[in-house]
C-alpha cells in the first residue's frame, strides 16, 4: 500500500496503529457547534468507520477505523462542516472538496464561557473563532485555548497560548454599603487584592487578577465590570515526554487585538528559529532554545499596545524534567 504520510497528515487524517486504517479529526473552533453537524459525523462513522467517534481533549471529533481509500469520498462529505465552521467564519480554504487544508495548528479550544458560565468574563467561543480565522490553516504545531476566567476550566495553562478573560473592577464609592462581601471573598478565594479602609474598598492593582469575583459578590452594583474586556495570556505550557510544565504569565490587561496579533506574530518567529533537522519542534522548545527575549521582541513587533497592557520582563519556566526525576525507590 502506498500512502504519502505527510500529505494525509496535513489533511487531518492520521496514521493509526492498525495498518491500512486512518482516523479523521474534525475541528470545532471554540468547542461549540450546531448539532446538525452530528449528522455528518454520524454518516462518516457509520459508513466508513466503525460507528463510533472519539471526543478529543481539544474539543474535536476523531472518527476512527477508516480505510485510506475512502479519504477523497469522506472529504466531500465533510464539506458542509468545513463550510460552516471554517469558511463562514473567514478561514481561507480554497479547495473545499479536498477536506482540511492543515492540521498542525490544533483546534482552538474554549471553556463554555459567558454564553453559559456565571464566572466567565467573555465569549470564549467567539474569541476562539476570531483566532482560528487568523491562524488557520497552518502546519506549525501550536496549541491555543481560551478560558473565561482564571478558574481555567479549559486548562489553558497546558497550552502554548492560554487566553484568560479579565475584567477591571469598577468601584463606585457612592453606591458602596461597606458590607465587605467583595473584600472577604477576594481574600478567601483570590489574591487578597481588596482591603477595607475607612469603610471603603481599596484595590491593589498589582494583586488584582481581574477575575471579576468582586463584581459577582457585590449586592448593590458598587463593584461592577469594566465595559472593556481584557485578557491575560499565559504561554508555553506543555505536556510531553521531556519537560511538562504549566504555561507562565506573559501579558496582562491585553486587548483582544493585541492578543490576536501576538499569536499571529508567533508564526514568523517559529519560521525563523525552528530546527528543521527535527521532525517537528514545538514552539515551547524553540523558546527554550533561543530565549524568551527573542520571542518577546518578535511577537511584540509592530503591535499597537493598549495603555493598560503589561508584559512579563522575564519568565522563569518551571515544570520538571523526567530525566532529572530520580528520587524514586521501592516502597517498603
Amino acid at each position: 500500500m502506498s500512502i504519502n504520510r505527510k500529505i494525509i497528515t496535513k489533511n487531518a487524517y492520521r496514521i493509526t496503529k492498525e495498518r491500512g486504517k486512518t482516523a479523521l479529526r474534525v475541528r470545532v473552533p471554540g468547542g461549540h457547534l450546531p448539532v446538525r453537524h452530528f449528522e455528518t459525523i454520524k454518516l462518516i462513522a457509520d459508513k466508513y468507520g466503525n460507528g463510533s467517534v472519539h471526543i478529543t481533549t481539544r474539543q474535536g471529533f476523531e472518527i476512527p477505523d477508516i480505510d485510506f481509500k475512502y479519504i477523497p469520498e469522506i472529504n466531500k462529505i465533510i464539506r458542509p462542516v468545513l463550510e460552516d465552521l471554517e469558511l463562514s467564519i473567514g478561514v481561507d480554504i480554497v479547495e473545499l472538496h479536498k477536506g482540511y487544508p492543515a492540521a498542525g495548528t490544533r483546534n482552538i479550544a474554549a471553556c463554555i464561557g459567558n454564553r453559559v458560565c456565571p464566572f466567565a468574563n467573555y465569549d470564549t467561543t467567539d474569541m476562539a473563532i476570531s483566532i482560528e480565522k487568523e491562524v488557520f490553516p497552518n502546519h506549525y504545531h501550536v496549541k491555543i485555548a481560551c478560558t473565561g476566567c482564571p478558574n481555567d476550566c479549559i486548562k489553558a495553562h497546558s497550552q502554548d497560548f492560554g487566553i484568560i478573560g479579565m475584567t477591571e473592577p469598577q468601584y463606585d464609592e457612592s453606591r458602596c454599603i461597606s458590607c465587605q462581601a467583595c473584600v472577604k471573598n477576594c481574600k478567601k478565594k483570590v489574591t487578597e487584592a481588596l482591603t477595607f479602609k475607612n469603610y471603603s474598598v481599596v484595590r491593589d492593582e498589582k494583586r488584582c487578577i481581574g477575575c471579576g469575583e468582586c463584581a459577582m459578590k457585590c449586592p448593590v452594583g458598587a463593584m461592577t465590570r469594566s465595559s472593556k474586556k481584557y485578557f491575560s495570556v499565559v504561554i508555553m505550557g506543555r505536556t510531553g515526554k521531556k519537560n511538562p510544565r504549566l504555561a507562565m504569565p506573559f501579558m496582562k490587561w491585553a486587548e483582544k487585538d493585541v492578543v490576536i496579533q501576538v499569536i499571529k506574530n508567533t508564526y514568523p518567529f517559529i519560521d525563523k528559529y525552528i530546527d528543521k533537522s527535527l521532525v517537528k519542534e514545538h514552539v515551547g522548545y524553540i523558546v527554550d532554545r533561543v530565549g524568551y527575549k527573542k520571542f518577546k521582541d518578535i511577537v511584540l513587533d509592530g503591535i499597537e499596545f493598549n495603555d493598560e497592557l503589561e508584559v512579563a520582563e522575564s519568565i522563569n519556566f518551571g515544570g520538571y524534567w523526567y530525566e532529572r526525576n530520580n528520587c524514586f525507590e521501592k516502597p517498603v
Binding site: 459567558n114 465569549d123 463584581a215 459577582m216 457585590c218 452594583g221 461592577t224 465590570r225 474586556k229
Partner: peptide, 10 residues
C-alpha cells in the same frame, strides 16, 4: 439599562 455589568458579563 444600567451603564454597567454587575454579576455576569454580557
Amino acid at each position: 439599562l444600567m451603564p454597567f455589568e454587575t454579576r455576569h458579563s454580557a
